[in-house]
Amino acid sequence: MENKNNNYKKKGGRKPKMNPSIHRHVFRLTDQENDRLISLFEMSGMTNKAKFIVSVLFSNEIKTVSIDKGSVDFYMRLTSLYTQFRSVGVNYNQIVKLLYSHFSEKKAAAFLFKLERQTAEMALLCQKIIEITQEFNRHHLKK
């Protein structure tokens, strides 16, 4: 038998909020006003539109995040290029070790001369990449 006066009965569901939002306000917007509100909401990065509107009404600081697709693409390509340079450096070390272990010193020196020319070209290319990156930072990221 169940005891109806049992105070230790478990209740399901959520715990009630300490200060629930019970007041509701409705307002209407034109198409242009609605588009502007939606764009501001999307730039803010918030996930709840009601919280965004409350923060705007009470002049809380609104954070807007703008993502430049070109900058992101440039950064991703630069990162992949950096990983390729690292792998070239690892391969360079392996090649030098193999040359000295499998070839005579004269033949290894001839191959190293060719490798040295390619390395100089790669160094020039790296300088150009650094210049392009600095130019990109000056013109596109420092706004």
Rank of each mutant, 00 (worst) to 15 (best):
M1W: 05
N3S: 07
N3M: 06
N5D: 08
Y8N: 11
K10Y: 03
K11S: 07
G12K: 15
G13V: 08
R14F: 15
K15A: 14
K17L: 14
K17D: 15
H23W: 04
H23S: 10
R24I: 11
R24V: 07
F27G: 06
L29T: 13
T30L: 13
E33I: 14
N34E: 15
D35A: 14
L37F: 14
S39C: 02
S44Y: 08
S44R: 06
N48D: 08
N48Y: 02
K51M: 12
V54G: 06
V54Q: 04
S55Y: 05
S59P: 02
K63M: 00
T64V: 04
T64L: 01
V65G: 04
S66D: 02
G70P: 02
V72E: 04
V72Q: 10
D73N: 11
D73W: 08
M76L: 00
T79G: 02
T79P: 01
T79D: 03
L81C: 07
T83E: 06
Q84A: 12
Q84G: 01
F85S: 00
S87L: 09
G89D: 01
V90Q: 05
N93K: 00
N93G: 08
Q94I: 07
Y100V: 01
S101H: 10
S104C: 03
S104I: 10
K106A: 08
A108C: 03
A109D: 00
A109V: 05
F111C: 06
F113S: 15
E116H: 08
A120P: 03
E121N: 12
E121F: 07
L125K: 13
Q127R: 02
K128P: 10
K128N: 10
I129W: 08
I132E: 14
I132W: 08
T133K: 10
Q134L: 13
F136W: 13
F136S: 06
F136H: 14
N137P: 06
N137Y: 12
H139S: 05
